[in-house]
């Protein structure tokens, strides 16, 4: 067999031979490109290089869940909602791998909500990408657990009456050790957040605002379109006061546990919240709750990143302790109870 030299610093080395089948114009294309470019960038430095053979993308069902087919790595396209559980087993059996989990809002928050919160609270070493388009795409346009109240869809002709989940609040509530938000129109921002999530030891949740141009077009336009960004996107930077606006004239304060947007001039710079990745979860929660609609200034970037014991390491250290006096012996096991000889 001849070795085919592949240059992992180039995007095509991370691109599989499968035809991508998302609708033209779908936000998923941008996310896929960012993921491929990110791996190419990591390959430029031997210290950050991850190999395709050591990388696995695990997904459930939905448009987003087709993602693994398009990465030239190992992959599993599994069952609706179950990807965090399946990925957990893979990560436990193979702590040496980089395991990514990809799913949409229906996959992760509706049918798979239980698996998601448990993967997060256990802090298994998984990087979970939640493509939030606030709609069911693959089943052709029903409201999702992140759709706004009043949403008119095929299954809610009179408008949805379900209050939605805020994925960031949910993840913080599950005591996730890494929580971030990015969006499909900014490749640089995506790559930066993906890199941090990937480097984090433990479970990371990245919410990606993703446009479904067929069933929910423009859901995030008021926030993520280039012209709106300055006034509507709040960039969270560790160690910096939270400020935004074209004139950098707005900021965020937390009063009685509640975050609010203020004019900097009204309160003074010192009153602004200084963002800390390792702040108390109540602070992360307050920031997450700042925006629960599509019209308010919305925080992006890393909400939370804290060090905590990682699950696969804890499991492996229990195994190592049990094997301290050598590996198990089958004969010893069989004779470990009371025995008698005839």
């Amino acid at each position: 067999m001849t070795e085919v030299a592949v240059d992992l610093t180039k995007r095509p080395s991370w691109t599989s031979d499968q035809d991508v089948r998302w609708c033209p114009g779908c936000g998923d294309y941008g996310i896929l490109a960012a993921m491929q470019f990110m791996h190419a960038e990591l390959a430029e430095d031997p210290a950050t290089l991850v190999k395709p053979e050591d990388t696995v993308f695990v997904s459930g069902i939905g448009c987003a869940a087709r993602f693994p087919y398009y990465m030239d790595t190992y992959g599993m396209h599994t069952i609706h909602g179950r990807s965090p559980a399946i990925a957990t087993g893979l990560a436990l059996a193979r702590p040496d791998l980089n395991v990514w989990v990809v799913g949409g809002d229906g996959d992760m928050l509706s049918i798979g909500g239980n698996h998601l919160i448990h993967a997060l609270r256990r802090n298994v070493n998984l990087t979970i990408l939640l493509f939030n388009n606030q709609i069911y795409g693959l089943t052709k346009g029903q409201y999702s657990p992140t759709s706004e109240v009043g949403k008119v869809t095929k299954s809610t002709p009179a408008g949805s009456i379900d209050p939605p989940f805020n994925p960031i609040s949910l993840a913080v509530g599950a005591r996730a050790t890494f929580v971030a938000r990015t969006h499909d129109l900014d490749r640089k921002h995506m790559i930066d957040v993906f890199k941090q999530a990937h480097a984090h030891k433990g479970a990371s949740l990245v919410e990606i605002y993703q446009n479904c141009n067929v069933f929910n077009d423009g859901a995030f336009d008021a926030i993520t379109k280039r012209a709106a960004r300055d006034e509507m996107m709040i960039n969270l930077v560790d160690g910096e006061p939270i400020r935004f606006g074209a004139e950098n004239d707005k900021g965020v304060v937390i009063t009685n546990g509640r975050a609010e947007v203020v004019k900097v001039d009204d309160v003074g710079v010192d009153a602004l919240v200084v963002h800390r990745n390792d702040a108390d979860p109540s602070v992360s929660f307050a920031l997450a709750e700042l925006a629960n609609d599509r019209q308010s200034p919305t925080p992006f970037g890393v909400f939370r990143a804290v060090d905590a014991p990682e699950y696969t390491e804890a499991m492996d250290s229990q195994l190592a302790a049990a094997q301290a006096n050598g590996p198990g012996d089958l004969h010893d096991l069989l004779t470990s109870g009371a025995t008698w000889t005839v």
Binding site: V56, Y74, M76, R82, I86, T88, G89, L90, L92, N114
Partner: peptide, 16 residues
């Protein structure tokens, strides 16, 4: 966390 995840985790481990 449940029966489904027990089976799912096992399947993930089998892939590994």
């Amino acid at each position: 966390e449940d029966e489904i995840a027990g089976a799912g985790a096992a399947l993930g481990a089998a892939f590994g």
